[in-house]
Design a protein around this nucleic acid. Sequence first.
DNA 1: CTCCAGGTCG
DNA 2: CGACCTGGAG
Length: 317
Amino acid sequence: MTEPDPTTSIAAGDAPALPANPDSLDAVRAALIDWYEADHRDFPWRRTEDPYEILVSEVMSQQTQLDRVVPAWEAFLERWPTAADLAAADRSDVVAFWSSHSLGYNNRAKYLHEAATQVETEFDGAFPTDPEGLQELMGVGPYTANAVASFAFNAGDAVVDTNVKRVLYRAFGVPDDDEAFERVASLVMPDGESRVWNNAIMELGGVACGTRPRCDEAGCPWREWCHAYETGDFTAPDVPTQPSFEGSRRQFRGRIVRTLGEYDELSLDELGPRVRVDYSPDGQHGREWLRDLLTDLDDDGLVAVEKRDDRTFARLR
DNA sequence: CTCCAGGTCG
DNA sequence: CGACCTGGAG
């Protein structure tokens, strides 16, 4: 019989990359875990295995840079230390907290509150421990379910986010295809090691293999196997560029929620000028424009709109 | 100006 | 598939 060829690619595509030789695959795995355990950023949620605390960190991290998440995460947990505490809170308080801490996407505050309620009412106060169960929770999709299962219970599959995709694309020539990323990510993760592994590969994507690669500065543990390091081609998968936030509908939705978080209730003409300086009741950006935004926020369950005495009032819901 | 742990819902 | 959020860093 022939010896296994150590350069054979497991990844699809034409770039030879991930070693098929089991010994080499073990070496690839061990190198990353050793690198992570030797030194990594000390985020506070990496010191807990409480699924509630992990979930809060994951939801916050999806939209905000990690350094800015830390103080918000600590303040949130100080105010609502457990899922039961959060479930018992008024949703408007949770949304107001979210907005005042500039955490973005107020809908996620609503989802988090709803998820805590589900844990209390549908799961008897105990988080599901596997990704399938976790996905039952509002606002928890495949990504977050895997992350929580991994970091809280060491029971997840490989996490695939844009960081992981970029690492796999560069290092092993995995084609820019979601199924290929899932397959290779799952293959390279050592069985039963989701907690340390997912932390480690995301750390790699965050500090060594970002948009700007820092292979040598960060002491990347995969240099000897890395296709990009060998060729000098550090192209990364295309990430869809998002429309500018400035002046967008989203920006004004955010301002409305933040403003209502500071008041009990406001009429249209009280709210308008606080949301945009060029508000004029009958102008281009007037009552009609504002009422349209409030209607959507009402539909999203974030704001309550009420007509009284021929006037319209809004409050956080 | 673009990028950043962008993923989830309807 | 479109909508949803922020602001600092580079």
